[in-house]
């Protein structure tokens, strides 16, 4: 009843892969690309979390009559 937890695994997978790409690029001396990849991964995950936050806030507003 807790919704789908697969998003958690998805985000963990994204994190692991971003970390691997980061490590490889760093080893090859492409420091700036490595930073960029980290940033992109972070932003994508942040989008997921933002979705979830707005969900929660909508629900709280509906439950507690906090509209307006």
């Amino acid at each position: 009843m807790i919704g789908d937890t697969s998003v958690l695994f998805q985000i963990a997978g994204i994190g692991i892969i971003v970390a691997m790409i980061h490590t490889i690029l760093k080893q090859m001396g492409k420091e700036e690309y490595a930073q960029f990849v980290s940033l992109v991964g972070f932003i994508i995950v942040l989008l997921f979390v933002l979705n979830s936050i707005s969900d929660l806030f909508q629900q709280i507003r509906a439950v507690f009559f906090l509209k307006g």
Binding site: A12, G15, D55
Partner: peptide, 27 residues
């Protein structure tokens, strides 16, 4: 999952925790 990502990508690990907390509250 947090422990897995803590060393490599601390920011994404933190977002996992945030997401879990949000899940709990929505639940």
């Amino acid at each position: 999952l947090f422990l897995l990502l803590k060393d490599k990508q601390p920011s994404i690990a933190f977002l996992i925790i945030v997401l879990t907390v949000l899940y709990f509250f929505v639940f």
